[in-house]
Design a protein around this nucleic acid. Structure first.
Lengths: 205, 205
DNA sequence: CGTATTGTTGAGTGAGATCAAAACCAGTGG
DNA sequence: CCACTGGTTTTGATCTCACTCAACAATACG
């Protein structure tokens, strides 16, 4: 995903839906689905998007010829899993207020990383229905929860623009611990090991 | 994990806990954590376990020299993610009864795959507290929910042994769709592509 | 301007939480 | 052999957070 927003989501036969994760610029999506026979979730764009696609066939070639890239992709996949696991913790054990605060901080951090959040302010191209489906809440309750966050002055909402006024306190409300985002990029050990091992691959494609 | 049960779990500072997934025989665990600087979840054994460990350092060598194995591990990681995403759907959008039914069917299927469930019967070495933490419910409510499942005759419980009497109906209650387990092993395409691409690696270590 | 979609607020309800207390079931140690 | 302990399961009673239903406002759209 080069630019734009999307969501990965799963649904039950009767229409109930769960947003698994938000796909932000810089994220990799649907990579391993090439290894599966069937898709187990859907993807919906929230804005117009710009993607860099990778020919499914070449995924195997990739593992053969570009082990370094393959490792990086595996790393990316592990990060994705960590994010989903944290969301599971949210939905399973955090209250509505905590969940909502946590998600806002998470999005803020992730967007900051790719330069899409400036001074705690970012664009959230998302309806409250989608927020509800991401957090396992009803639309009405998301609405009230956002209002509470506004009332205590932690955030401000103007259309799709969200401003986080006090990210320290918002993080605290959401019991946010950025550990799981694994913001430290590929560890040095990885770089070293890859550089030392005999390698016939060139640069990345 | 060669033999035994374990859980992967995350916790909040105040003690609330979420079980992310159950680690069953045949599962791979903590593999990519070598790629991270910090662990973002804990692992607890539920029984005595037998594991086959892999030297963390060699993970990089593996990507270099055994691309086929690397791809298989990536595939395994993707399956893990799919399971967690399905649990997220459960916790976010299914009722207590549905969740519980779904989990039981999931465990039954996964255990069957490795020959640990016989005729809908398997050992569940797990307290109700752990079930509660896996499903985002209270202990008391898990207890009542299990009782309901017993009362309708869908399952039987004798100590740690669980018997699924009517897996069709239990699947239906849990809206279980085994798609997400990706039971079909590595697709033929993968095999083909790996065999065709130029390869200097031997057999797996 | 109608029509849809989304956001907002009020009122009443309910699924699941919390609190409390028994019952049960290994150990385990006297 | 029995009392005692700590963990787990079970059940009852009460409470509450979040859901549902319903209506209306705001905004966007063709």
């Amino acid at each position: 995903m080069r630019d734009g927003w999307a969501i990965r989501h799963k649904a039950l036969p009767d229409g109930r839906r769960q947003v698994v994760n938000f796909v932000l610029p810089g994220d990799i999506i649907g990579f391993y689905c090439n290894l599966f026979e069937t898709a187990d979730h859907g993807v919906t764009t929230l804005t117009s998007v710009e993607v860099a696609s990778f020919a499914p066939d070449r995924i195997f070639e990739l593992f053969k010829r570009f082990p370094r890239l393959a490792a990086a992709l595996a790393w990316s996949g592990a990060k994705e899993e960590a994010i989903i696991a944290e969301r599971l913790l949210s939905v399973g054990r955090r209250t509505a207020l905590e969940r909502t605060a946590h998600l806002i901080v998470e999005l803020l951090k992730r967007l900051s990383l790719v330069g899409l959040a400036d001074g705690g302010r970012f664009i959230l191209p998302v309806t409250q229905e989608i927020l509800a489906d991401a957090l396992g809440l009803s639309i009405v309750h998301i609405n009230r929860t956002l209002r509470r966050l506004r009332d205590i002055g932690l955030i401000e909402v103007a259309g799709q623009q969200i401003t986080v006024n006090d990210d320290k306190q918002l993080s605290s409300v959401g019991q946010f611990d950025e550990l799981y985002l694994h913001l430290i990029r590929a560890p040095k050990r990885l770089e070293h090991a890859l550089d030392q091992a005999p390698d016939r691959s060139r640069a990345m494609p």
